[in-house]
Design a protein around this nucleic acid. Sequence first.
DNA 1: GTCTATATATCGATAGAC
DNA 2: GTCTATCGATATATAGAC
Lengths: 195, 195
Amino acid sequence: MARTQGSHSDITGPRIRQAALRLFARHGYAAVSMRKIAGEVGVQAGALYNYTPDKQSLLFRLMRDHMQDLLSAYGEQKQTGDPQDALRRFVGFHIRFHLQRPDEVFIAYMELRNLTPENFAEIEDLRRKYEDGLEAILREGQRAGIFAVADTKIATLAVIAMLNGVMTWYRAGGRLSLDEVEAVYWDMVRKAMTA
Amino acid sequence: MARTQGSHSDITGPRIRQAALRLFARHGYAAVSMRKIAGEVGVQAGALYNYTPDKQSLLFRLMRDHMQDLLSAYGEQKQTGDPQDALRRFVGFHIRFHLQRPDEVFIAYMELRNLTPENFAEIEDLRRKYEDGLEAILREGQRAGIFAVADTKIATLAVIAMLNGVMTWYRAGGRLSLDEVEAVYWDMVRKAMTA
DNA sequence: GTCTATATATCGATAGAC
DNA sequence: GTCTATCGATATATAGAC
């Protein structure tokens, strides 16, 4: 029962978000028009406004959902009292979670400046919450004498920046398996943090 | 002798590049119009086309000049036979060079996708040349038994990614001096690479 | 070399028919 | 809920006067 016109609220919404995600990641928010997104979905531009009040909200919700997924998934990780083990788990979690969502990750880092000030503040708040998780591990290890970094906040940002670098080069089916990539980065992070 | 019209070829060209650099870094290439750039300079939009064939060339030349400056400045660094010392110098050079050019650095990383395929390839070639400089240091240290990394190419990208993280938080006059920042990162890089 | 004016195209968002 | 049509603004780039 193919239709060229009619009601599709159940599927059109997710397809709009999916198309916007893909196009924003490829070409950037400012370079993607609502018409382009609509064309990808197979509707006219006007139909998009049944699902989003405007283009800005479309971007913001993609980023907010991503950050909330990140925090939620990290919260479900098994906790451990051993800082070294906790750091190892963090490295593995961070690499695997982000490699599974390249478009979301790309947008979350590249499109911050296209958010309104209010939306920007909310995304930054979520990002800081995630970073705080790692810093707590480093502080605990520091206290226990396992880690030795000059500044836990800088070390937190340094570890995350290093791990994010994986996204720029890793491709599934490449020279290294995911387990090997994780092991290589864990080796560097462990040595950099350890006393 | 103020004039509202006339010939200013000596100064208009640099001012256009300066304005484009600033605006592209703040708002992104796609979000900045030629009229905005012209307004910043104090001329009409049509006058810009006496200095650039189009908007794309304006972006490309900013990025190419930056990458060539980077390679040129790094080439002038004093070379040393000791890999550990060479790595220490690289960390210091990279941090200081990039912190002095935040707008250029931002554009070089954020606007790659707005380059034509030919221009993209040329910028990527320059970037790879710079990365090769660091990898040569790591390989030499690896050969000498000073460094112990699983993969020199990944380690190269990891070190650069970690150092680039400085650009996201460092502000002059902040809690740490530039010397202290350099020392903190050198400590982490040294430990991560060393056997 | 810069100006004004304009060609041509596209943008985000809205209105009203179905 | 999606369509067609459109408003008003803005885009890159060019032409011709000075």
